[in-house]
């Protein structure tokens, strides 16, 4: 079987499994709630099944790009950095967490010009302060610092 078809097959199986699980849960819902829920889940499970069948029928035909697992390394590290940044928002405040994240992410992406990095960070956070805090009065997360 072509690798791209295996990918599609896995997507179809995962979606179908989630859909069936959601359907089982929906059996506890009242009849009026069940009606549209089953329409949406029916579409989801049905389309997952079509994708599974399609991948099997076209198993030998290349279909789309094959995603190499190695490509996920940097995006997953990026995701972890974003997650840590969000977790820090409530702890050390929006502006401090954002400054740390921005400088860290620029460095992570391979940028090595400290002055430009600092100016970009200050400029961006200054703009956010003026627009959101000063002008729109949005109350941003505050932490132990400010």
């Amino acid at each position: 079987m072509e690798k791209s078809r295996i990918q599609d097959l896995v997507i179809g199986i995962v979606c179908a499994a989630v859909g069936i699980w959601a359907w089982i849960i929906s059996l506890q819902f009242p009849a009026t709630t069940q009606m549209y829920t089953h329409v949406a889940l029916g579409a989801f499970i049905g389309l997952s099944a079509i994708l599974i069948v399609w991948s099997v029928i076209h198993a030998k035909v290349p279909g789309g790009e094959v995603v190499q697992p190695a490509i996920f390394k940097n995006p997953m590290l990026t995701f972890v950095m974003i997650l840590v940044y969000v977790l820090l928002l409530d702890k050390i405040g929006f502006f401090v967490a954002s400054a740390v994240f921005m400088l860290g992410f620029m460095w992570f992406m391979g940028y090595r010009k400290p002055l430009t990095m600092i100016l970009t960070t200050v400029g961006m956070l200054g703009f956010i302060y003026l627009l959101f805090v000063y002008e729109l009065h949005v109350s941003l997360p505050e932490g132990i610092l400010f």
């Binding site: 994240f101 921005m102 620029m106 970009t120 961006m124």
Partner: peptide, 14 residues
């Protein structure tokens, strides 16, 4: 790009 991406992320979170 390394300068652009953190700006997009911070703006997304905000």
């Amino acid at each position: 790009i390394p300068l652009l991406l953190p700006c997009i992320t911070v703006f997304s979170v905000l």
